[in-house]
Nucleic acid binder design. Structure first.
Lengths: 342, 342
DNA sequence: CTGAAAGCGCTAACAA
DNA sequence: TTGTTAGCGCTTTCAG
């Protein structure tokens, strides 16, 4: 046997003394073949170490049973649990999952869309806040797309998300109830929908409590640790006074805490902090982070479930809204009335 | 135009008044076609919104320009930077990267190998400590495989790694130099090579300092935060005395610190801790973690570089060894001689 | 239950 | 420079 030689279905057929059609059937729908014949085929397969060529298969079926999970930034552990959920549901439905990294870069998103357009994958689960406008116009030419966590203006697609505005409002109200009035917000990349919703929740909570909105206390960032650091540094150097921070990602919260600390400010004694997501590190740091938990595994599972519906030809444009939960840990302390330190 | 209709190369050819071969050429090697012809083709492509069918293409070429990065546990942020490095190099070489999660599960590894065997991907970058024995015997039937970070006994393949034994020895010696004698080790999943090398470094450092090895101070885990917690809990409940911990992953170190803290033990005042990897959180927690930095981005890039060589038919079995660096931060404190607390 | 044969869309010889 | 043509390996009718 030639070293570079790869066996194909014809060799199996020849060896088993049957037709290629029978080999194919024996492999794909074993019950459609007589037991005896099946055995002959399996023996031949075994003997020459045959495994069907996936390219040919995909080509023939015009499907490779693969779905792409495109995330904003693969460096954010937030997505890992999502991936696991997607992968579980996908695996159950006979699909594989490929994870792509948009790196906060619109042209990279466009590249992935193009991949999907060329049918490199059967579907796309999108977790970026972007979608190239040009391609958005011809959605009908694209394979199924499902949105998870994020939404895109003007893109009417099946979606799994949480009620960001309410979650955010509840978190800020918790801070207010603890006596805080000067509450900073580390927002996501405005004006994206996701960031805007959380920002809106923040503003509403303030408004309802009769607290004036102060734009110096809001910084937009890309959800990374670095963005959290940078936001705090900015506020500190502008001497903006605040006693609490509501961050729209745990990573930003963690970056913020780290930066505060390096300026001699303690959490929660000097500044209280609330994050968003409840990534695994949130509960492992000091102080354990009070944060808005998103049901990420479930979000992934549901997104893939919607995808499977789409893949099976159903055309619902359902939006599933999952519950969040404010997880109280140790990063928020009461604020004495009248206190005002940076 | 039918809604479900997908255009193909023949329609483009017809519209442009050329042959399908010319269309293919115009798209793949534009300079092999006269400018005028090219324009006709592009116009036609534009008009019917044609994009070549990737399945057909892969089938014809028996390649889909995709490489799988199979990791032990996608939940560990360690792999994210690796992915980025791989992705960069892959992108330069015209490849895409798919990330798979072995979930510490050998049968899942086997499934991925089977995918690769069926040529779902052109190559596999393996970051698990496992390789199914059966499939290891027929390596010649598999597409190119490159090992990164981890090695597998009996698998002689191109590899990118660090010198784990030395790195580990240096870290432990740093602890010894700080006065520690009762040093615990949170090992990886023994007896895997990676875990064993780091364990061996730990033992050697102890031996050279004349410190007796105490097996109660060694716990094997899967590199996760949970494993770190669990290891500390185990030692504490067995009343094993130790003043320092050398963990073989930052996640385990972070889990350990968290668990220590919940038992009223402070880091580094009561227990010093060193991690391994230098994930992004290592520098964001309190205290900032002293750890062995692995050049992860570079590791990913080099792994993909080796992969490209393989893909291009070169058959080197090179092992590249990258440098680590002990990053001194705040999680190690001197240990007074004679002190002995848990 | 099995075989013959067509053909998925594209690319690469080869010929012109 | 362009066209003709022959498949790549598999699945799936359709006959038998």
């Amino acid at each position: 046997m030639n070293k570079d030689h790869v066996s194909n279905i014809r060799e199996v057929a020849a060896l088993a003394g049957v037709s290629t059609a029978t080999v194919s059937r024996a492999l794909q729908q074993p019950d459609k073949v007589r037991a005896e014949t099946r055995k002959k085929v399996f023996d031949a397969v075994e003997k020459i170490n045959f495994s069907p060529n996936a390219h040919a298969r995909s080509f023939r079926q015009q499907s490779n049973q693969t779905v792409i999970l495109l995330v904003r930034d693969i460096g954010n552990p937030f997505y890992l649990e999502i991936y696991k959920g997607v992968e579980e549901a996908a695996s159950d439905a006979g699909y594989k999952v490929l994870m792509g990294d948009a790196r906060n870069d619109e042209t990279r998103v466009a590249n992935y869309i193009e991949m999907v357009r060329q049918k490199q994958a059967d579907g796309l689960i999108l977790m970026t806040g972007h979608f190239p406008e040009e391609q958005a116009k011809r959605l009908d030419l694209l394979p199924p797309i499902v949105l998870a966590s994020e939404t895109v203006p003007g893109l009417d697609l099946p979606t799994v998300k949480v009620d960001n505005k309410t979650a955010s409002k509840d978190a800020v109200r918790y801070l207010i109830d603890a006596g805080h009035r000067r509450i900073a917000h580390l927002a996501g990349p405005l004006p994206e929908n996701l960031a805007a919703d959380r920002f809106e929740g923040y503003r509403q909570a303030l408004a309802e409590a009769g607290i004036d909105y102060n734009e110096d206390l809001v910084t937009s960032g890309d959800y990374s640790i670095e963005a959290g650091r940078h936001a705090v540094l900015g506020m500190l150097s502008k001497k903006s006074a605040f006693t609490a921070i509501f961050a729209s990602s745990d990573q930003m919260a963690i970056g913020a805490i780290s930066e505060l600390r390096s300026h001699g400010l303690a959490v929660p004694d000097d500044v209280s902090v609330i994050g968003f997501d409840d990534i695994i590190f949130a509960n492992a740091i000091e102080p354990p982070l009070t944060t808005v938990r998103q049901p990420r595994r479930e979000m992934g599972r549901q997104a893939m479930a919607l995808m499977v519906e789409r893949l099976n030809g159903q055309k619902t444009n359902e939006t599933i809204e999952l519950k969040t939960e404010l997880v109280i840990r140790g990063s928020v302390a009461p604020c004495a009335p009248g206190r005002s330190q940076t």
